[in-house]
Write a protein that binds this DNA or RNA. Structure first.
Lengths: 340, 340
DNA sequence: GTGAAAGCGCTAACAG
DNA sequence: CTGTTAGCGCTTTCAC
């Protein structure tokens, strides 16, 4: 099928290999009729340049990688990731890049895959999902001087480029909203322990409470893991503390929490108001009507790619940092509608 | 960092480039002490072979692609896909292959991406999700004589390799189960129109009904699209026909259907029994307790890769066909537990 | 068991 | 504007 080479096309078009190369790479300095003639042959023969040869000669692979470290095990549980991936894939399509997907399952995988990630001959750049503290892969990637964009601020941001939302103020706003609605025993369900997202969201939550003169109450804080079931258990843990509201660090956990609340015979939002984080499509289902912090997940992925392109084209320093806006979407689960 | 070449390593180890090549490729015919010496240098220098050069010289890229055609727009809505992708990714890790992800969004994407897929210089093989009828991409891929595994039987299986579950008997069993429980007005919510999965599952459903002497009743058939909301609407459409059971072609649709049933003031399973398809983690949530057909989604992905490896190593003919087993998982939504 | 040499198919100066 | 000429870094005969 496609064992044609530049040379073959050149011969058929009666020009040199270089000219064909110029044509397929859209270089100027080719006479219009020659260009047409070559294009014609390319069309007729169905010629496509050999990717490996092109990469080798030009030192550009037109490929980037999306890496999900081991600690991010919710890839297939949290709808967040498919959306995020979708944004990345679309941006790649638009920029004519190929996307490599690296889901790290085990320590072993990590060892095997790392060399593939860090050698420029395969990837021109990497987007890595920020994970938990102690995630060595991210650290090693940061040291590899590959163009790298971290999705979500990393632990040590030593000059690394990343994209994030302002989790602290988002959580602050969400919690403040509950306070304004008159709730006074507000709990929180945090995300995966030791991850920057979780830490930041908890910080925003606390800031709102302390700012209103409340004191920190550890019985109102429960650890989740970003999963629905994790939210369910965390809520069960919270119930004895008699909260009248809860801020969950993800929609999935908020939904789990609502389930736990209802199972215990209480009502949402009458007895306990709930606010989530993400605004995934499920949040707006009539069953949930979840008040939540909307973050532009798709955009998040899309822009991560654009930052990466910038890094690739213009060098990795200075580090680029982008903070996307969030928005509080008020539905019924927080009880706002009932006050009117 | 890694601008080292074989030549550099060779020099440092006092051998020739070929020998180093043999060592890093685990070829026999290298004296043990030489091998050790070379390995030592490789270790010290952190040498990693250039992927592009290797691909060019050996004509092997050690990379496969996962392609989701345009008609498969539920990638980020249906948890099915992340699970499937996870299986593929794990298998790739195990076999030391790199996975390329190609999410086709528009006709334009398709045109741009197709050449990347069909030239062997980038990918050694492809897994494509079977989509709707008229999905040109899949047809073109089948014609490209690239090693290709279709996930879910394609429309025209002209000698293509694919992996699937026996949707007809799975649906037959699910429906028969409802019949055995005494239900007599069983509706179905089909998947995306014009897709083999949907057709097969509907066929199994009908077969069970007809086999029991029922006649086909079109008012008991509603079209969904594999989404939750699609299942919801489809169920609303079904309600006037007063079904006492419904078989949905996916868990997500089954969940949407249950929501519609409850919203209309009816109970599951008392008034209407529900059976789904997939057995995703959400199916077992206490809210749903969904009786469903379990298909091994992760395995599906994993084995798709293994078939592909076989195609790559041993030639694409004859076509390989694998049908995975399903299992009916009985929970509460079908009403089985209440009969005892 | 090891080295020399010839590519793999393309890009990119450099001449002309 | 076009062709010639070197590579890009590796694999793989083929001698020795």
């Amino acid at each position: 099928m496609s064992n044609l080479t530049l040379e073959d096309v050149a011969k058929q078009a009666g020009v040199s290999r270089s000219t064909v190369s110029r044509v397929i790479n859209n270089h100027p300095n080719v006479r219009e009729d020659v260009r047409k003639r070559v294009l014609q042959v390319v069309e007729n023969t169905g010629f496509h340049p050999n990717a490996a040869a092109r990469t080798l000669a030009s030192q550009r692979s037109w490929m980037i990688g999306l890496v999900l470290p081991r600690s991010v095990n919710s890839f297939f549980l949290d709808p967040y990731f498919p959306h995020f991936t979708q944004g990345i894939a679309q941006a790649c399509n638009q920029h004519n890049y190929t996307l490599g997907l690296f889901l790290i399952g085990t320590k072993d995988d990590e060892e095997k895959i790392f060399p593939r990630l860090s050698r420029k001959s395969l990837l021109e750049g990497i987007i890595v999902q920020s994970g938990q503290f102690g995630d060595q892969l991210t650290d090693r990637l940061m040291d590899s001087n590959m163009p790298l964009v971290i999705a979500g601020r990393p632990f040590h941001s030593n000059n690394a480029s990343y994209i994030d939302v302002d989790n602290v103020s988002a959580a602050y706003n969400a919690t403040s909203h509950l306070l304004r609605l008159g709730r006074s025993r507000i709990g929180t369900i945090t995300g995966l322990a030791n991850s920057p997202v979780s830490i930041d969201r908890k910080e925003g939550y606390l800031k709102a409470l302390l700012g209103r003169g409340f004191t920190q109450d550890e019985t109102l804080v429960a650890a989740g893991d970003f999963t629905e079931i994790g939210g369910y258990y965390a809520m069960q843990q919270l119930l004895p503390a008699k909260p009248d509201a809860v801020f969950a660090a993800s929609d999935l956990m908020a939904i789990g929490a609502m389930r736990a609340i209802r199972n215990s015979g209480l009502r949402v939002p009458d007895d306990i108001a709930v606010v989530g984080f993400d605004d995934l499509p499920i949040a707006k289902l009539p069953d949930h009507q979840l008040t939540t912090v909307r973050q532009p997940v798709y955009q998040f992925g899309f822009q991560a790619v654009e930052i990466l392109m910038d890094l690739i084209e213009n060098g990795i320093k200075p580090a680029r940092r982008i903070i996307l806006d969030t928005e509080l979407i008020v539905r019924n689960s927080c009880g706002a509608s009932q006050r009117k």
